[in-house]
Simulated assay, not measured.
Amino acid sequence: MISQYQESLLLPARTFQSGPMNTTYEDVLEHIDSGILLFDEEGVLTFVNKQMYGILGLNRHSLLGCTLIHLLSNIQLNRFKKKQVLRGYREMMKKGKPSYEFVDEYGRYWTVSLHCGEEMKGCYLFTFKEISDYKLIEQTAYQNDSLAMLGKLSASIAHEIRNPLTSIRGFIQLLHPHLHQLGKEEYAKIILAEIDRANDIIHEFLTSSKPSVPQVAMIPVSALLKEVVLLTESEALMKGCEINFYPLQEDMIISGDIKQMKQVVLNMIRNAMEAITEKIDDSIGRIELGASREGAEVRIFISDNGKGMDICTLDRLFSPFFTTKENGTGLGLSVSDRIIKNHGGCISVSSRINEGTRFVISLPLIQ
């Protein structure tokens, strides 16, 4: 059932005459950091502050006196915002929820709260507040908790699984001549390969929970990237990809652990290869690799024209155990993120579905 107020929200716009509102209170509402929409008991919009106009992307004073249906018919309101307004209306007005969270087209998090009842004298007050910083803190706390749990889990896994795997591997090697006589030599190869894969997963757990202290040395960025290209060129060709390396315009040197830095770039290039093999069309897969100076930093970029990622995947990309791969562990990017942070840098990523992904590694340069 739709209440009388909800029906009034959907009525056509009508002429609105501003009432005698306290100027001091109005000034306060104009300058708070939240967006405000105030509807009276008849569903007419009586007050909108400047932050709310900015959130909606509409001209100032173009909404007073309108109802919800008139707001949705505003040609200046884009399709994405109309969709969010309707979804918020359904969640709070029809389902009776006091608040509603959403992500806007720029990836920012917002919460909408509804205040009504006797204290509002029949009016309905909607407040919009950006909570992106809170979400970041929440995600960081969750990640730290996951890493703490991972540290305890990985130590147990290393002791309880590695030893029997080593024994099994030894016995399979002893049985290899007998399997060869029986014509079942491929069974031994499969078993050994699976044991090695299990050991690799255990190694990833240990690395992610307790990454080694960087062995600091001076690393020429150009030499680092050239070596990574040499290591991955043949694998890329086998997967139908080509790697385009853009030679650096100048010599740039960073300080860090060469093995860890190589691990990060290799991981991202291999991720790019997998994204290209999973894309829908048959276009040639391309991976671009290069670097440029930005002030006192170097920006190393790895981009591909693979299947891309949606915003939900991007939000959880560096979380431990999160993976979209069938046989993935969800630890590669979380380990890479920690390595770069330990080197005083950061990783940023942008992506679009069916268009590709671009990673940028920012690291301080040695002057």
Score class of each variant (00 low, 15 high):
residue 303 S to F: 07
residue 206 L to C: 09
residue 259 K to Q: 13
residue 294 E to G: 02
residue 207 T to L: 05
residue 292 S to H: 15
residue 203 H to S: 02
residue 290 G to N: 05
residue 233 E to P: 05
residue 255 S to K: 14
residue 282 D to W: 02
residue 306 G to W: 07
residue 252 M to W: 07
residue 279 K to D: 08
residue 216 V to G: 03
residue 215 Q to R: 06
residue 303 S to H: 08
residue 236 A to I: 10
residue 207 T to H: 00
residue 235 E to V: 09
residue 234 S to G: 08
residue 266 L to V: 09
residue 270 R to Q: 12
residue 252 M to D: 00
residue 232 T to P: 00
residue 251 D to Q: 13
residue 296 A to Y: 03
residue 272 A to L: 06
residue 258 I to S: 13
residue 278 E to G: 02
residue 301 F to P: 13
residue 286 R to F: 13
residue 215 Q to H: 10
residue 290 G to Q: 09
residue 282 D to E: 12
residue 307 K to Y: 11
residue 206 L to G: 04
residue 220 P to S: 04
residue 265 V to Q: 02
residue 254 I to N: 08
residue 307 K to D: 10
residue 271 N to I: 03
residue 241 C to Q: 14
residue 305 N to A: 12
residue 236 A to M: 07
residue 217 A to P: 00
residue 283 S to Q: 13
residue 255 S to T: 12
residue 291 A to S: 06
residue 294 E to W: 03
residue 292 S to D: 12
residue 269 I to S: 05
residue 255 S to L: 12
residue 276 I to P: 02
residue 234 S to Q: 14
residue 242 E to V: 15
residue 248 L to F: 02
residue 245 F to Y: 15
residue 202 I to N: 00
residue 274 E to L: 11
residue 307 K to S: 14
residue 269 I to A: 06
residue 245 F to W: 15
residue 204 E to T: 00
residue 265 V to R: 02
residue 279 K to F: 07
residue 204 E to C: 00
residue 243 I to F: 05
residue 202 I to C: 00
residue 283 S to D: 10
residue 258 I to W: 05
residue 280 I to L: 05
residue 259 K to D: 15
residue 291 A to I: 05
residue 223 A to K: 09
residue 258 I to Y: 13
residue 254 I to W: 09
residue 223 A to P: 00
residue 274 E to C: 08
